[in-house]
C-alpha cells in the first residue's frame, strides 16, 4: 500500500500511464502499434535520443542544462573518423569509438573546467562551447558528409533482430547500437546507485554547500559529470553515424531541446538533485511515440510538432503546479502541527 502511494508521487508513474493509454488508443485505432515492426522501429528511433538523455540527466541532476552534446557528438565523431582514416585503422570499429570517446571527453572537460571554475550558468557556457565546436567542425575542418570506414559499415549492416509484419509486409531491424545503449544504461545505473561518486552527483545537485561539508569533492564531481557527458555524447554520435550508414555533419545540431524536454517529462527536476534513468527512458519513449506513431492513427505528420509542443507544455505545467501546490500544502500542514 505504501509502495503504491509512493508510486503515485513519482512523475515517472504518470508518464507511464500516459504511454499506456496512448499506446492502447493507437492500437485500437490502427491495430498497428503493437505490431512487431512498429515496436522495433520505436526502439530503433529511441536509441540515440536515449543516449543523449543520459547527458541531459547527469548535467541537470548535478549542475544544470547541458546543450552541447549534439555538437560534441558531431565533432568527436568527425575527428574520430578522420583520425582512424589517417592511421588506416578503419577495419576496427572499436578504435573509432575509443578515439571518439577521447575527443568527446576533452570537449566535455572544457565545459567542465569553465563551469566549475567560474560557476557560470551551464546553459550559457554549453551554448558558447556548442558554437565553438560547430565553428571548428564546419569552419576550420569544413566537414562534409563522409562514408564510414569498413568496421563501422559492418556494424551498421549487422542487426540483432529482424522482424517482418505478416499483415503489412513491413519489416524492421534492431541495430547493434541497441547493445551499446543497454550497456551505457547499465553502467550509468550502477555508477549512480552503487558508487559514492554516483551518490555525489545527486548530493551536489541537492545542496552544494552540504556536499562540500560532507566531504564530497564538488568540483571534481561536476568536472567529472561534464567530462563523462562528452564521452557519452561521442558514443551517441558514432551510433548515429552507424545507424545512418554515413557521417552527416549538419544532421546533429538541434536535437538538444527535445532531449531535455523528454527528461523533464520523465521527472528530472530543473533545480537539480532529482532524476532517474527510468524517467529518461519513459520521457524519450513518450516523445518518440508521438513523433513516430501519430501517423498510424491517421493524424497528419503536420500535426506532430503541435502534439509534441502540447505534451511538453501540459506535462511541465502539471509538474510545476504540483510542486507549487505541494509547497502550499506543506505550509498548511505546518500550521496544523
Amino acid at each position: 500500500m505504501k509502495k503504491l502511494k509512493n508510486l503515485t508521487k513519482q512523475s515517472e508513474f504518470y508518464v507511464f500511464i500516459i504511454i499506456v493509454v496512448l499506446s492502447i488508443i493507437i492500437q485500437a485505432r490502427s491495430g498497428l502499434f503493437f505490431a512487431n515492426n512498429n515496436i522495433v522501429d520505436t526502439v530503433r528511433s529511441m536509441i540515440v535520443p536515449s543516449i543523449y538523455a543520459l547527458c541531459a540527466l547527469l548535467s541537470f541532476v548535478s549542475t544544470g542544462p547541458d546543450v552541447s552534446f549534439p555538437l560534441i557528438a558531431a565533432l568527436s565523431t568527425y575527428l574520430a573518423l578522420i583520425t582512424t582514416n589517417a592511421l588506416g585503422m578503419g577495419e576496427s570499429m572499436v578504435i573509432v569509438f575509443v578515439f571518439a570517446i577521447v575527443y568527446g571527453s576533452i570537449m566535455g572537460a572544457l565545459n567542465g573546467i569553465i563551469i566549475v571554475k567560474y560557476k557560470f550558468p551551464s546553459l550559457i557556457v554549453t551554448l558558447g562551447t556548442s558554437s565553438i565546436f560547430s565553428g571548428i567542425l564546419l569552419g576550420a575542418f569544413e566537414a562534409e558528409r563522409m562514408d564510414l570506414p569498413a568496421g563501422l559499415q559492418r556494424m551498421g549492416k549487422a542487426s540483432l533482430l529482424s522482424v517482418k509484419n505478416a499483415e503489412t509486409g513491413l519489416g524492421s531491424t534492431l541495430p547493434m547500437t541497441f547493445l551499446i545503449l543497454v550497456a551505457l544504461y547499465v553502467i550509468t545505473y550502477l555508477v549512480l546507485n552503487y558508487t559514492m561518486v554516483g551518490r555525489g552527483v545527486y548530493a551536489v545537485g541537492g545542496d552544494e554547500v552540504s556536499a562540500e561539508r560532507a566531504g564530497f569533492n564538488v568540483k571534481k564531481i561536476r568536472f567529472g559529470v561534464f567530462t563523462a557527458n562528452g564521452a557519452i555524447a561521442a558514443i551517441g554520435g558514432v551510433c548515429y553515424a552507424v545507424m545512418s550508414m554515413r557521417y552527416l555533419p549538419t544532421e546533429y545540431a538541434g536535437g538538444e531541446m527535445i532531449v531535455i524536454a523528454a527528461i523533464v517529462l520523465g521527472g528530472t527536476r530543473m533545480a537539480g538533485g532529482v532524476g532517474t534513468l527510468k524517467g529518461c527512458i519513459l520521457g524519450t519513449l513518450l516523445l518518440t511515440m508521438v513523433s513516430n506513431s501519430l501517423i498510424l492513427i491517421g493524424i497528419s505528420v503536420y500535426w506532430q510538432k503541435v502534439f509534441i509542443g502540447a505534451i511538453i507544455i501540459i506535462g511541465t505545467a502539471v509538474s510545476a503546479l504540483q510542486s507549487y501546490g505541494a509547497s502550499r500544502v506543506k505550509s498548511k500542514v505546518k500550521e496544523a502541527a
Binding site: 550559457i124 558558447g128 558554437s131 565553438i132 565553428g135 569552419g139
Partner: peptide
C-alpha cells in the same frame, strides 16, 4: 562557419 567559432569564444 568560422563565425560560430568566434562567437563562442567571444561569449566565454
Amino acid at each position: 562557419y568560422y563565425r560560430d567559432l568566434i562567437w563562442g569564444v567571444a561569449l566565454i
